[in-house]
Design a binder for these strands. Structure first.
Lengths: 149, 149
DNA sequence: CCCCGTGTTGAGAATGCGCCTCAAAAGCGC
DNA sequence: GCGCTTTTGAGGCGCATTCTCAACACGGGG
């Protein structure tokens, strides 16, 4: 039915029910950034019978296949997001846990320059800004997941 | 004997043997970046009788007192380093695990700007470059601790 | 369209890092 | 030195993640 079934096969994974559901979830959920626990809870909430171990296993497989990216926000649980090709960095609100994405060509360029000056090539990088909202009405919108951190 | 004894008292901590030893260790070790496990092993190797719990406790106290900084390199264990006032970011060699430090005012500035544009103030940030050595003779120098990561 | 072999799943146990508990021991003001 | 308070060491606990293993599902071949 879905092209996701083909997507999975093309990366050498059987199109099983849990895998399809997890991929679907990432494609339709509003909050792009989910922990393994989030994924588990959301699927259970859809009356699916799935184990946490499967969620972890599938997330790792998807990461290795390049479908998802895994991020380690400050201390604690890993967060996954759909890999849609365009690289970006993250900004995490310390108050409400909200995550925003940004991309700054100048920062990227400086990074490469710094590494090159020391005789290295950047293979990957992690840039996280932990911020506080200036506005008094910081939207403590209870996202699908509890505030990170 | 040491001024460290005074340092500790001035931040409201008794000058106990374990605390003095841990502080000494960070001041004299060549590899600035140590995990709790590293600290534990190094002290045991010096025939000191210390518990891992104490190491964790003291490291956390030192972090809160501003003597040490805690970093979360990619996934896994936290790494501590002496806080000597001058902020910097890190570059980690994927081959030998070596860690170098750098500071780029332009990147710092861009970060603040990006956050400000979105109505946030940067409280703290994490920037790690995971790099590969260009030179064929990448010095896989076995530092006191096993390669991070 | 069913059968079988291999890949996958779910449950619970296991791991690893870090923190907590508690009785024994060590600082330190007097 | 005395005693009160803080700290220590050992082991246990908690959380996130991974492993183990028997039961089960996918999907190619007949």
């Amino acid at each position: 039915m879905s092209s996701n079934s083909q997507n999975l096969k093309s990366i050498g994974l059987k199109a099983t029910f849990p895998r399809l559901k997890i991929l679907d979830l990432f494609q339709k959920v509003e909050n792009r950034h989910l922990t393994a626990e989030d994924v588990y809870r959301l699927l259970i909430a859809e009356d699916m019978d799935i184990g946490l171990a499967t969620v972890y296993r599938v997330l790792t497989q998807f990461e290795q296949a390049g479908l998802l990216e895994r991020h380690y926000f400050e201390s604690g649980k890993a967060v996954f997001e759909l890999n849609e090709g365009h690289h970006h960095d993250h900004l995490v609100c310390l108050q409400c846990g909200r995550v925003e994405e940004f991309f700054d060509p100048e920062i990227e360029e400086r990074q490469n320059k710094i590494a090159a000056e020391r005789g290295f090539t950047v293979r990957e990088h992690a840039l996280y800004l932990y911020v506080e909202c200036l506005k008094a009405d910081c939207p403590h919108k209870s996202a699908s997941s509890a505030p990170a951190r």
